[in-house]
Simulated assay, not measured.
Amino acid sequence: MKKILSLLLAVMMMVTVLAACGGGNSGSGDAGNGAAAVDTNTVAVGAVVIARDDVPEDDIYAFVSTIFENKDAITEQHAKGGELDLDFASSVTSVPYHPGAAKYFAEKGKDVASVKDGAGTGSSKALTFGTGGESGTYYGFGGVLSSYVSNNTGVSVTAVTSGGSKANIEDLAAGDVQLAFVQSDVMSYGYNGERLFDSKVDNFSVVAALYMEQVQIVTTNPDIKSVADLAGKSVSIGDRGSGVWFNAVDVLGAYGIDPDTGISPVYQGFSDSADSLKDGKIDAAFVVAGAPTTAIVDLATAKPVYLVSLDEEHTSNLLAASPYYSAYTIPAGTY
């Protein structure tokens, strides 16, 4: 009997010790929810598909109509399909629309702001679609769109990886691609020869605005709760001169933080930024892409991630200075 009591006492003591140490839990506790626990207030730009002016009207009509007439089927393959909306798609004002796209939207009762004169008269051929990096939304969603259009129309579209918005505009101008994903702000810079571009690149027109791209400030440090907390920290702000870099410059500037001296800047793309966060090499990273973004989703499986919100006052100041942004809330549960 004494042996049995001693054994029971030993078991009870071990259970107590394990409970104090967290037992068999992973140790992450509620922190594993990270950014999923709360809404995140930020700003966003549009993700827009553009085309060379010499792509035939019929080809662009087939591309746009196939996407919007098969929204449910596309959404089954990629969540961004659920954000396709005719009003948003036809809402771009800074660059004229391709005639093929304008024709489809007019059939749906949506008048675009302007249509590119002389566009849509080239010869039909296989189309190459410049997207983005392998871990970004551009490539994932662009691949789905390309495959669906190719499999359901007489138009062949192939999605390829690229260096992002600026590179896509340059590749499109050079004739290396015929379709491209771009941020709406970078598209405007290129068309008007501003910021990222030394001269105008205007041999393209709009196909459709597809969804909003959120400026996501990602960290694995729960003590970084506001943009102001980034001061003095190591922060990835995209490749210098990229669209992400200008977004970071705009957001940091709204808080009075110089991107060269107010932080320790690191110039990395989405995947490298996620790896650096995972390895503890940087404190935070700017990622501009449709949420949920693959690179952040993958990071969140390894450790808790948090998204940094912009407060209302600084958001208002940013929107006043840069009207191509829109206020946006990333809902809890996105990651």
Rank of each mutant, 00 (worst) to 15 (best):
A62I: 08
S26H: 03
V177M: 04
A101D: 00
F181Y: 13
V201F: 11
Q268I: 04
G175W: 11
I4R: 12
G34N: 09
G143C: 05
K110M: 13
T261F: 08
F63K: 01
L86Q: 09
V207A: 04
T158K: 10
N247I: 09
T293P: 05
F197E: 02
D39G: 07
K71N: 07
V305Y: 02
D311R: 14
G163L: 11
V55H: 00
L307R: 08
S28K: 15
P96M: 01
F246P: 02
S276H: 11
V92C: 07
Y189A: 08
E83V: 13
N203H: 12
V215G: 07
S236Y: 12
S150A: 06
G175F: 08
G24Q: 15
T66C: 13
L127M: 13
H98W: 00
S28M: 14
S165E: 00
V45S: 01
D54L: 12
A295T: 00
A79W: 15
L318V: 12
A73N: 15
G24A: 14
A79C: 08
G122L: 00
N221Q: 08
L7C: 11
F129W: 03
A126P: 07
S26Y: 05
G24H: 14
V244S: 03
N203E: 02
A248F: 04
T66S: 14
Y104S: 15
V266M: 08
A248W: 04
N203G: 11
L145T: 02
G132E: 01
G109H: 08
L230E: 12
T66K: 13
S309H: 11
A167K: 12
V95A: 00
